[in-house]
């Protein structure tokens, strides 16, 4: 038998090179990503203090202050966006999964929803601003919450649609054969069965909006003072980071890192929680 040893050697060299480069790529990718996390965590923990939660954004040049105004603003705007966006998204997801599984309407809405899901968030902010000014409003917490709601909606629609469609056909058929009206089947049986997945979607939406800066820049604008009035301009954690980090003031930068640390840990925590919910549920079902 005639084996071409040169060819085998060359193929093995190419293969070895590819394996080495691919491992190197993994190392490089993880290195940069962990470098960013490391910077955020070390600088953030250095700058942590209780004042962060009790004091408002100080003027430049001050030596103490916090981001209480931003935390409250974020809480209120994200809360409202979820309160409106999550139920609406769940309802729309039910429609897609149960009433428009196949057919034109379903595919059109799904397509548009996917576009909305990846649309540049700054554009959504511009839209929210235009809409609010057209209605006679201005920079306000309402406008910010509306912009965030537009980000929540497509995330929740998509996960609800996917999770509802995963439910076994027998569940639906058995419920209907018992004479339960369709809307009850959908909300009290199928949705309940899909609840862990749907919750994951809502949590992922929360993780996403708590870090969104661009859509808030000219809807909620930002506000150095503490306010609970959503009719006024409102600070949020990400917009306060943008303001504090872009100024050369050293204490402001320190505050920015502390806020960045808080925000990143929150986002990571929520994402991990979402994964755990999905995984435990999967394990329980298998």
């Amino acid at each position: 038998m005639n084996i071409n040893h040169g060819l085998i050697k060359r193929r093995q060299i190419v293969n070895g090179l590819a394996i080495a480069l691919s491992s190197l790529a993994t190392a490089v990718g993880l290195f940069f990503l962990f470098w960013i996390l490391y910077t955020t965590f070390t600088r953030g923990i250095d700058a942590m203090s209780w004042n962060l939660f009790t004091m408002v954004t100080p003027p430049a040049g001050a030596t103490e202050g916090g981001i209480a105004n931003a935390l409250v603003g974020s809480l209120m705007m994200c809360g409202l966006a979820l309160l409106v966006g999550a139920p609406a998204g769940i309802a729309a997801g039910i429609y897609l999964a149960e009433y428009a599984k196949l057919g034109k309407a379903g595919s059109v809405i799904r397509f548009v929803n996917d576009i909305l899901l990846s649309a540049p968030s700054i554009v959504l902010g511009l839209f929210a601003f235009s809409l609010v000014t057209a209605l006679g409003g201005g920079f306000s917490g309402w406008a910010g919450a509306f912009a965030l709601m537009m980000i929540v909606l497509p995330v929740v629609v998509r996960t609800t649609d996917e999770m509802m469609r995963l439910q076994p056909k027998q569940l639906r058929e058995a419920s209907l054969s018992l004479g339960i009206p369709l809307w009850k089947v959908n909300t009290q049986i199928l949705l309940r069965a899909a609840l862990p997945g749907v919750t994951t979607g809502v949590l992922l939406a929360l993780a996403r909006i708590s870090g969104e800066t661009a859509p808030l820049l000219f809807t909620a604008l930002g506000n150095s003072f503490f306010t609970l009035n959503m009719g006024e301009a409102m600070e949020s954690v990400p917009t306060s980071i943008a303001k504090l980090a872009m100024n050369p003031d050293e204490f402001w930068n320190k505050l920015a890192w502390a806020a960045a640390f808080l925000m990143t840990s929150f986002v990571l925590l929520i994402s991990v929680l979402a994964r755990i919910i999905l995984r435990t549920n999967k394990a329980a079902n298998d």
Partner: peptide, 17 residues
């Protein structure tokens, strides 16, 4: 998880580091 880190964090790391 890293795909979910807010983009402003990347911006901050960019400008400061």
């Amino acid at each position: 998880l890293l795909a979910g880190i807010p983009s402003i964090i990347y911006g901050m790391w960019g400008i400061f580091v």
